[in-house]
């Protein structure tokens, strides 16, 4: 991604690419982070699943990985080969090819980027292995590349947040703290939210999903929109940045300025419990059980819906400390 921004100079781009391959040292290992493939000892009836996770770039992703590993176990009737791609497409393609060679029953993966999968997807199709996409989607020329996709509905998350605001603070003057512009989570959460209560949004700024930039944006918003009394942040981290900015300005987050966020990571829920957030819509990473059910249906040859939406919850300040402590992410 960094390449494309530098790409103006062709030479630079080429140099960068060649360097990138250099830095992928250690990628000679057959599968980085592979958790022992049990090729020989197949227990009869177990579904052989090859799962390629894109990496572990955030707490959300780690929780997602843990949930998948915890549900696709031998006891539950799965024989899982899990490979962490460490956020490199070449690792992921390699893992997918390994899965084909191992002749697994189902391949599941979360693509690290949308494009560049044509060849390997065609190979998977030729090998007649059903493919399940998890969390993210692909953009490919291969026809009908996957049987089903499972992930979160960002638009619905935005809608849920909007409906809470409409019900509880219908006159709110809202400042919207957007995620990285153009990302799926930003575009769709905004769309869903504004569908419901767009007229009340008086200002917006991007905080790039980070605490630091969320804080900076809210510092500015305090002067630019002095009458704002509700912040809708596209993720918890920016909401936490907003809390810091509000407290520094002598305002009480959750009281003077209400905060509604999406994600539901532990830090965010803690802020909710402490009364600094008012409402948190979950973006649930722990959908391993839903994935397991889906994989069973695919294996049994049942027709599955093209899309499976992960069940998201939403929390208000009545959340209990026990619930937060039990949170794995």
């Amino acid at each position: 991604m960094r390449h494309s921004k530098l790409g103006r100079i062709a030479v630079a781009a080429i140099a960068t690419l060649s360097l990138a391959t250099l830095t992928a040292c250690g990628s000679d290992d057959p599968a980085p982070g592979s958790t022992g493939a049990t090729s020989g000892g197949d227990k009869g009836g177990n579904i052989k699943v090859g799962f390629s996770q894109l990496g572990a770039e955030s707490g959300w992703r780690t929780a997602n990985t843990e949930s998948i590993k915890a549900n696709l176990t031998a006891e539950n009737g799965f024989d899982l080969t899990f490979v962490d791609a460490q956020q490199k497409q070449e690792n992921q393609i390699k893992a997918l090819r390994d899965f084909i060679d191992q002749d697994v029953d189902i391949i599941a993966f979360s693509p690290v980027i949308e494009t560049g999968w044509d060849e390997v997807l065609q190979d998977i199709k030729d090998a007649e292995i059903p493919l399940v996409l998890v969390d993210r989607t692909v953009d490919t020329t291969v026809e009908d590349p996957y049987v089903t996709w499972i992930g979160a509905d960002f638009t619905q998350e935005g809608r849920t947040a909007g409906e809470w605001v409409k019900k509880n603070h219908p006159d709110a003057k809202i400042f919207e703290l957007q995620g990285t512009m153009g990302s799926g989570a930003q575009t769709n959460r905004q769309e869903g939210f504004r569908e419901v209560i767009g007229d009340n949004v008086i200002g917006e700024a991007s905080g790039n999903f980070t605490r630091a930039e969320g804080k900076a944006a809210v510092e500015g918003a305090l002067a630019a929109y002095p009458d704002m009394d509700l912040i809708f942040a596209h993720n918890d981290d920016m909401g936490l940045g907003a809390v810091e900015a509000l407290e520094a300005a002598g305002k009480k987050p959750g009281v003077d300025v209400k905060i509604v966020t999406v994600d539901g990571v532990r830090d965010g829920l803690q802020a909710l419990h402490d009364g600094k957030f008012n409402y948190v819509v979950e973006c649930n990473p722990a959908f391993g059980n839903q994935l397991a059910d889906l994989l069973r249906s695919v294996k049994a040859g049942e027709t599955v819906p093209k899309e499976t939406i992960v069940i998201d919850e939403a929390f208000d300040q009545t959340i209990t400390q026990e619930f937060i402590d039990a949170r794995t992410f």
């Binding site: 140099a15 960068t16 360097l19 830095t23 990496g55 962490d84 460490q86 956020q87």
Partner: peptide, 24 residues
């Protein structure tokens, strides 16, 4: 200099990822 420092520009993030093991 452009090329010499580009090595770390690209590899450096890999190093940082190794240190944090890809986690935040």
């Amino acid at each position: 200099p452009f090329i010499a420092t580009m090595i770390l520009m690209v590899a450096g993030r890999g190093v940082a990822m190794l240190i944090t093991q890809g986690q935040i």
